[in-house]
Nucleic acid binder design. Sequence first.
DNA 1: ACACCTTTTTAGAATCATTATAAACTACTA
DNA 2: TAGTAGTTTATAATGATTCTAAAAAGGTGT
Lengths: 132, 132
Amino acid sequence: MKYIEKLRNSGLRPTKQRLQICEVLFNSEKTFHFTINELDQKIKKQINDKISLATIYNTVHAFEKKGYLKQIPINSNQTYFDTNISDHHHFYDLKEEKLIDLENADVGPINILKKINGKRIKSVEVLVKLED
Amino acid sequence: MKYIEKLRNSGLRPTKQRLQICEVLFNSEKTFHFTINELDQKIKKQINDKISLATIYNTVHAFEKKGYLKQIPINSNQTYFDTNISDHHHFYDLKEEKLIDLENADVGPINILKKINGKRIKSVEVLVKLED
DNA sequence: ACACCTTTTTAGAATCATTATAAACTACTA
DNA sequence: TAGTAGTTTATAATGATTCTAAAAAGGTGT
């Protein structure tokens, strides 16, 4: 299995559930956005074994902590994650309640001129809200 | 009262509760960030009458819809609002879990090159995450 | 293969922010 | 002052997320 190494290298035991979740998350050409609920549905469709919701929560958070997933900062009652961990931004269509990727090339370089003592910039995320 | 006009002009009846919430939100030199819970505490301290939590939720959402408050897109279990409705951005200190204003001048101009058919850009918000 | 220990999974309960409900109340208008 | 539409309120309901504690599985050494 191609994910066993990845998991072991980051100190996560390659359990059956984690490997199956890896398949669902990382085994497609395209990256995508999801909520825990949507992921749960996707897993139900693609995987025969049942994975408990608690495990999905645990796993997604573990992957996020290891940098395999990113949380998307957006105001919603559900948390959105992204399998695209590259530096990029998002449109948020307010009417459709849909996220759309903005490639880095679609946004001019962003210059943060202010500095805070003793702090480093971890990420810069742009959310562009769209209306009709 | 100085807020009566403001409310009436935007089609909101100037009720006692709304006027009192206006006092708490807009009657200070500095703008600030808050969660509903924090606002509830602030109201308890500054106002003698009791305002029900439901009213606080209703009012904050009404004010947000009218443009007197802005929601800050951030991943948190609670929704953050900002009394600063000018075009500006935020630092988020991951360790302290604190929001810090970034004046518009602190961020270079942001150029969104991609267009979506039939949609207009409503807002562009930058969240800069800070770590130690 | 076996024993041992730690990590992980799991179902279900608990938590907590937010929204819905529906009855009482209040601002406005005639 | 009566009528009505908009508001407030306490409380219940919802729903995402986290907690719990017991069972299962992974890893290691023998």
